[in-house]
């Protein structure tokens, strides 16, 4: 299965990656070769096989409903590219 340039652009948009024209060419090629590699799965009969998400097939543990964390805003904001008044700042969002 190969993919075309438009597919690459669509995927890149979903994944929020800015690609140049050259990048699109390159990824079209490299994504196609990965998809070709994984294509061999399709020949395997998996009817009736349950998908496996977690190797141990454990079940979810539950946490007590208690507040265990304190306010550490300053430490958490320290890595942010841009902040003001305790907020993370991003380019204006228009709704």
């Amino acid at each position: 299965m190969s993919i075309d340039k438009q597919d690459v652009q669509k995927i890149a948009h979903l994944a929020r990656l800015a690609l140049t024209e050259d990048d699109v060419d390159q990824y079209q090629h490299s994504l196609s070769s990965v998809l070709a590699l994984v294509e061999q799965m399709q020949s395997v009969d998996t009817d009736g096989v349950e998908p496996l998400s977690n190797p141990l097939e454990m079940t979810q543990r539950l946490r007590e409903d208690i507040v265990t964390e304190e306010n550490r805003r300053d430490a958490f904001l320290a890595n942010a590219p841009k902040t003001d008044a305790g907020l993370f700042l991003v380019p204006q969002v228009i709704e």
């Binding site: 208690i66 507040v67 964390e69 805003r73 958490f76 008044a85 907020l87």
Partner: peptide, 26 residues
């Protein structure tokens, strides 16, 4: 609930911005 769905941060309305957050919520 007292704490969040997936973390031990307090749940509440009207707290100062980003003061009720943990590593998980961020």
């Amino acid at each position: 609930t007292k704490s969040k769905l997936f973390s031990g941060a307090a749940v509440g309305f009207g707290a100062k911005p980003n003061t009720q957050t943990t590593l998980v919520d961020l």
